[in-house]
Amino acid sequence: VFARFTGGKVLTEQDLAPVLEAMKQHLMKKNVAREIADKVCEAVGESLIGKKVSGFKTVKAEVQNALSAALTRILTPKTSTDLLLSIRSKLANAPAASSSANGKRAPYTITFVGVNGVGKSTNLSKVCFWLIQNGFKVLIAACDTFRSGAVEQLRVHVRNLGMLANGEAGGSVELYERGYGKDAAGIAKEAIAYAKESSLDVVLIDTAGRMQDNEPLMRALAKLVSTNNPDKIIFVGEALVGNEAVDQLQKFDRALRDFSSVGGGHGTGRGIDGMLVTKWDTVDDKVGAALSMTYVTGQPIIFVGCGQTYTDLRQLRVGNVVQALLSD
């Protein structure tokens, strides 16, 4: 009897089961994928079995704490998310090989990939705006040669961004496009060559949306990656996505790795380097997709898209996400 008050209680599986089950339901309501909610709660349970409850803490509070720590661990980036640093260091230390014969420097290249309609082109434009503000000369490569209006969509963004760039510290933007129906990998290659020739700093490669199970389209994407070996491959996913978050990321990552190794270019065996989570402004505190995505890939969320204007791009605040996930 006294044990309950003096903190002598040792947690058993039976104590934990109902609390963990409630926790799992809670996470699913926050839009965490079922499989991920399962795994996280299981791990939390294992870490607590046999643990002594300290002071007046209840089992529930003990589980809450452990869960909060686990969520923080999963969401905290394990690799650098400092894109500016990464770009600056590449541009500064351009290796001899790529600054080849004519002495020109290779640009930093970023590819945006993901399923249909998640916000690749829009958020690529936001990233472009941010790079311009930081003084970079940017080239946008229109490599979605399939969807109606995809090229014109980028043309409008480049026109808007060009006007905004006026007066920004040396920043600029251009569009590289070759219309519709052509091979995306080839256009990306030409764009990168053009950027090098014109001494531009960064190439942002827009790609067509595709379903992760569509093998021909996934192979085409892997070809773009293997021939061009981009510095960063950013997976764009929306905060609205439910359980599909898991399958999308696993299959994009695997397809890129598997299919690109057949290509034989420099970018063989490349996978996803990080995520951009869009439509954050549409889900209130149901931010579970961010957890599913980071759990599956172990890669960081580099940006969060939270609206439809160029300034609606943020860094992930791990503390806020954890709080939202735990809140009632």
């Binding site: 209006g149 995809a150 969509q153 409008v156």
Partner: peptide, 12 residues
Amino acid sequence: FRAGAFDQTRQS
């Protein structure tokens, strides 16, 4: 609102 929206409709 969306950039290129009318072009998308026109083409499709």
